[in-house]
Design a binder for these strands. Structure first.
Length: 496
RNA sequence: GCGAGCGUAGCUCAGAGGUAGAGCGCUACCUUGCCAAGGUAGAUGUCGAGGGUUCGAACCCCUUCGCUCGCUCCA
C-alpha cells in the first residue's frame, strides 16, 4: 500500500490536492482540490447522486443552506453536546476525554478520605479496588471497610471537587487540568452590524438541513414512506487535531441520505441491513479494493443516545482502518426535537394506517473527501520498468478525471497534427479528453498512466491512409487499431 | 492543545557560519514512428515567515506558521 507521504506528494505534483492557502504557508485542516482532484471528486459525487437519487424512485434531492437558524443546532444537541471536554495530566502529559475518566469519593463511615480516579477500560474495576486499598492504607484505615463507591464521569465533577481528584496516572490530586470545553462548531454572525448580529453556525453536518425540510418535501412531492432525502454539501467542524491529509479536515463534504420509514420496531432492522449491503456494493462499484473494506458494527453500549443501531463501513487507509461511511438508525429523535423546538407539527400522515406519527430514519452518511482518498489509495500503483519506477493510477474509467488522450505520433508533421486535433475536438464534445503532442509518445503514455487516464489514442501515418487509430490501454498497455466509429462505440460501452 | 521530529527549485533530497546544488519533472527544437527513448538548448529559489546574535546566517538563538508521528477524534 502506498505510504501517505508519497500519496500526498503525488497529489500535489499532479494537481489532485493542494494544501489550502499554500502561498501563505497553508492552513491546518483545509485543502484545495486541483484540476484533476476536482474532476475525480465531481465524478464521485455525480455517481453517488445518479445511483442514490436519479436511478431510484424512492429518494429525492435537497440542497439546504450551510447556515441555518441557530435553534436548529440547539434542537439537534450540537450547541450543548457537540464538544469533547478534555483533561490533561500535567505530569505525564497524557490527555483524556473527561467522559471516559471516572472518579469517586472514598469514605469510611461517612468520613471522606479522598478521591480515586480511573480510566475507562477492561481494568477499570480492578483499578478501583487497587486505588481504594491504597487510599485506605494511606489513611491508616486498612482494616476498615469503605462506604459504597459511586463512580461518576469526570464531566460531572463540581469545580470545588476537582482540585481534590487525583490524576489517574499519578494518583496525586491537582495533577489534572480542569476539563476544557471545545465546541466543534464554527461560529459566525448574521447581520450587518456585528454588535446587533445574531450568532450563527456553519453546519457541522448536512443532515439537519434535511430534517428541517422534512415537512416541506412531504408536502411538495407526494412521497410516501419509506422514502429518502439526499443531500451533498460542505460541512464544517473545528477539529482539535486535523490529521491524515484530507481524512479529517475542518471543511469537508458529505453525501447523506435520510431514509424515512414507519416508526415500527419490526421494520428497521431489515431495512438497515439492506442499506448496509447497498452502500457496500456501491463502494465496490466505484473501485475501492474489497480486501481493504470492512464493517464495524457498533455495540449497543457505544451508541449515541438517539441511535438504535449503527454500522460503519471501514476502509484500510495507510494510517489505519478508519470510518468511511456510517449507516445509523436514528429512530425519530431528530424530528421529535425539531417538532418540539419549532413548535410546528412534523408528523407524517400514514394513509394506510390512518394515523399520524414521526417516522424513523436510517442515515447512510459518507464523506466525499474520504471516498476520494480511499479511491486514490486503492488506485495508486507503482511498477518497475527497466529499473525505473513509475506510478499508475488504476482508476475505473468512469472515475478517471480524463477519459482519453489523443496524440499525434510526432508533432512536426502538420497532417498528423491536423488529423489528431480533429479527432480530439470531436471526442472532447462527449468525454473529457486531453491532447498532447510534446516529446516522445512513450512519455506521453506514461504521463497519462500516472493520472489514471484509461485510454490513449495515437494518430500515425497509417491513420492518414485508412482512418484507423491506435487505442492503447492503460493497464494492459495493449494496442488495437480502431476506426473512429469503433472508438466511440468502445468508449460508450466502457463508460456506461 | 501537549510531547517528539521536520520545513532548501514543481517533486525527492544534499549542503551544518564564508558566491545556492543534484536527480527527476518542466519548456523549446530535432526524430516514418509506440512505452517515463536519445540528442541539443533553456527557465526556476525572498533556503517556510518574522525578529535576534555575527564582519558575514539556509546553517546558531527566539517567536510564529505549516507538515509528520503519538495522545485524542470521526463524515
Amino acid at each position: 500500500m502506498v505510504a501517505m507521504k508519497d500519496l500526498v506528494a503525488f497529489c500535489k505534483r499532479k494537481g489532485f490536492v493542494f494544501p489550502s492557502s499554500d502561498i501563505y504557508g497553508g492552513l491546518n485542516g483545509f485543502f484545495d482540490y486541483g484540476p484533476l482532484g476536482t474532476e475525480l471528486k465531481r465524478n464521485v459525487k455525480n455517481l453517488w447522486w445518479k445511483n442514490m437519487v436519479q436511478d431510484r424512485e424512492d429518494i429525492v434531492g435537497l440542497d439546504s443552506a450551510v447556515i441555518l437558524h441557530p435553534n436548529v443546532w440547539k434542537a439537534s444537541g450540537h450547541v450543548d453536546g457537540f464538544s469533547d471536554p478534555m483533561v490533561d495530566c500535567k505530569v505525564t502529559k497524557a490527555r483524556y476525554r473527561a467522559d471516559q475518566v471516572f472518579y469517586a469519593p472514598i469514605s469510611v463511615e461517612g468520613k471522606l478520605l479522598g478521591y480515586i480516579c480511573v480510566t475507562d477500560g477492561e481494568e477499570r474495576d480492578a483499578d478501583v479496588a487497587k486505588k481504594t486499598k491504597a487510599l485506605l492504607k494511606a489513611h491508616n484505615c486498612s482494616q476498615e471497610k469503605p462506604d459504597e463507591i459511586h463512580l461518576k464521569p469526570l464531566t460531572e465533577a463540581k469545580p470545588e471537587e476537582f482540585a481534590l481528584i487525583p490524576s489517574p496516572a499519578t494518583d496525586k490530586p491537582g495533577d489534572l487540568t480542569p476539563p476544557r470545553e471545545f465546541n466543534l462548531m464554527f461560529q459566525t454572525q448574521v447581520g450587518a452590524v456585528a454588535s446587533e448580529a445574531g450568532v450563527a453556525y456553519l453546519r457541522p453536518e448536512t443532515a439537519q438541513g434535511i430534517f428541517i425540510n422534512f415537512k416541506n418535501v412531504v408536502d411538495s412531492t407526494r412521497v410516501k414512506l419509506p422514502f429518502g432525502i439526499a443531500q451533498i454539501g460542505k460541512a464544517f467542524r473545528n477539529e482539535i487535531t486535523p490529521r491524515n491529509f484530507t481524512f479529517r479536515s475542518r471543511e469537508f463534504e458529505q453525501m447523506e441520505i435520510e431514509y424515512f420509514l414507519p416508526a415500527d420496531e419490526m421494520l428497521w432492522p431489515n431495512l438497515h441491513q439492506k442499506w448496509i449491503e447497498e452502500r457496500y456494493q456501491w463502494h465496490l462499484s466505484i473501485g475501492l479494493r474489497k480486501e481493504w473494506l470492512s464493517f464495524d458494527v457498533h455495540e449497543k453500549k457505544d451508541l449515541a443516545h438517539y441511535a438504535k443501531a449503527c454500522t460503519d463501513i471501514m476502509f484500510r487507509y495507510p494510517f489505519g482502518v478508519q470510518e468511511l461511511e456510517g449507516i445509523a438508525v436514528r429512530g425519530n429523535f431528530d424530528l421529535t426535537q425539531h417538532q418540539s423546538f419549532s413548535g410546528k407539527p412534523l408528523e407524517y400522515f400514514d394513509e394506510t394506517l390512518k394515523t399520524k406519527y414521526l417516522p424513523y430514519v436510517i442515515e447512510p452518511s459518507v464523506g466525499v473527501d474520504r471516498t476520494v482518498l480511499a479511491l486514490l489509495v486503492s488506485a495508486y500503483d507503482e511498477d518497475e520498468v527497466n529499473g525505473e519506477k513509475r506510478v499508475v493510477l488504476r482508476l475505473k474509467p468512469k472515475l478517471a478525471p480524463i477519459k482519453a488522450a489523443v496524440f499525434p505520433l510526432v508533432k512536426n508533421k502538420p497532417e498528423l497534427v491536423e488529423k489528431a486535433r480533429g479527432l480530439f475536438s470531436r471526442l472532447q464534445k462527449r468525454w473529457y479528453t486531453a491532447y498532447d503532442e510534446t516529446g516522445a509518445v512513450g512519455r506521453r503514455y506514461r504521463r497519462m498512466d500516472e493520472i489514471g487516464t484509461p485510454w490513449c489514442i495515437t494518430v500515425d501515418f497509417d491513420s492518414l491512409d485508412n482512418d484507423t487509430y491506435t487505442l492503447r490501454d492503460r493497464d494492459t498497455m495493449e494496442q488495437t487499431r480502431l476506426s473512429e466509429a469503433e472508438l466511440t462505440a468502445f468508449f460508450e460501452k466502457q463508460l456506461r
